[in-house]
Measured scan of single mutants.
Amino acid sequence: TVKFKYKGEEKQVDISKIKKVWRVGKMISFTYDEGGGKTGRGAVSEKDAPKELLQ
């Protein structure tokens, strides 16, 4: 599970739902399947990112 803040809201998403991951400076950005055909997005700092996300 990845915990992150998006627009001031605390969120979390299961690693299995993450589609795409990329690095922006010291942040790790990602998109994930929100269900219902929607794609969500989020970002975590490199130090807070789970190891599975960095692979």
Rank of each mutant, 00 (worst) to 15 (best):
T1V: 15
V2W: 03
V2E: 01
V2K: 01
V2G: 01
V2N: 01
V2S: 01
V2R: 01
K3T: 12
K3Y: 13
K3W: 09
K3N: 09
K3A: 07
K3D: 04
F4H: 02
F4K: 00
F4Y: 05
F4C: 03
F4E: 00
F4L: 03
F4W: 12
Y6E: 06
Y6D: 07
Y6Q: 08
Y6R: 07
K7Q: 09
K7S: 05
K7N: 12
K7R: 13
G8S: 05
G8V: 02
G8P: 00
G8R: 03
E9K: 13
E9H: 10
E9M: 12
E9W: 07
E10A: 10
E10C: 11
E10Y: 14
K11M: 11
K11C: 06
K11S: 03
Q12P: 02
Q12Y: 13
Q12V: 15
Q12H: 10
Q12L: 11
Q12G: 04
V13L: 06
V13S: 02
V13G: 01
V13I: 14
V13A: 04
D14T: 07
D14L: 15
D14V: 07
I15W: 05
I15D: 01
I15F: 09
S16D: 10
S16F: 09
K17F: 10
K17I: 07
K17N: 10
I18V: 08
I18P: 00
K19R: 13
K19D: 07
K19L: 15
K19T: 14
K20C: 14
K20P: 01
K20T: 10
K20F: 11
K20Y: 13
K20V: 09
V21I: 12
V21C: 08
V21T: 06
V21D: 01
W22I: 04
W22D: 02
W22Y: 08
W22C: 06
W22S: 03
W22R: 05
R23I: 09
R23Y: 08
R23D: 01
V24I: 12
V24S: 14
V24N: 12
V24P: 02
G25A: 05
G25H: 05
G25S: 03
K26Q: 12
K26F: 11
K26I: 11
K26P: 09
M27R: 07
M27W: 15
M27T: 09
M27H: 06
I28M: 03
I28Y: 06
I28H: 00
I28C: 02
S29T: 13
F30H: 00
F30N: 00
F30L: 01
T31H: 04
T31D: 05
T31W: 09
T31Y: 10
T31G: 01
T31R: 03
T31K: 04
Y32G: 00
D33Q: 05
D33L: 06
E34S: 09
E34I: 13
E34D: 12
E34A: 15
E34L: 15
E34K: 11
G35Y: 05
G35L: 06
G35F: 05
G35V: 08
G35D: 09
G36C: 10
G36S: 10
G37T: 05
G37K: 05
G37M: 05
G37E: 04
G37C: 05
G37P: 03
K38G: 07
K38D: 04
T39V: 14
T39D: 05
T39Q: 08
G40L: 08
G40Y: 07
R41Y: 15
R41S: 07
A43Q: 15
A43E: 12
A43H: 13
A43F: 15
A43L: 14
A43W: 15
V44L: 10
V44G: 00
V44F: 03
V44C: 05
S45C: 14
S45I: 08
S45K: 12
S45Y: 14
E46R: 11
E46D: 08
E46H: 09
E46I: 14
E46S: 10
E46W: 15
K47A: 12
K47Y: 12
K47R: 13
D48S: 09
D48A: 10
D48R: 10
D48N: 13
A49V: 05
A49L: 05
A49D: 02
P50I: 05
P50D: 03
P50K: 02
P50N: 04
K51D: 11
K51C: 11
K51R: 12
K51W: 15
K51G: 09
K51N: 10
E52Y: 11
E52A: 12
E52G: 08
E52H: 10
E52C: 07
E52K: 08
E52L: 11
L53P: 01
L53T: 01
L53H: 01
L53G: 01
L53F: 05
L53E: 00
L54N: 03
L54V: 11
L54G: 03
L54Q: 07
Q55Y: 12
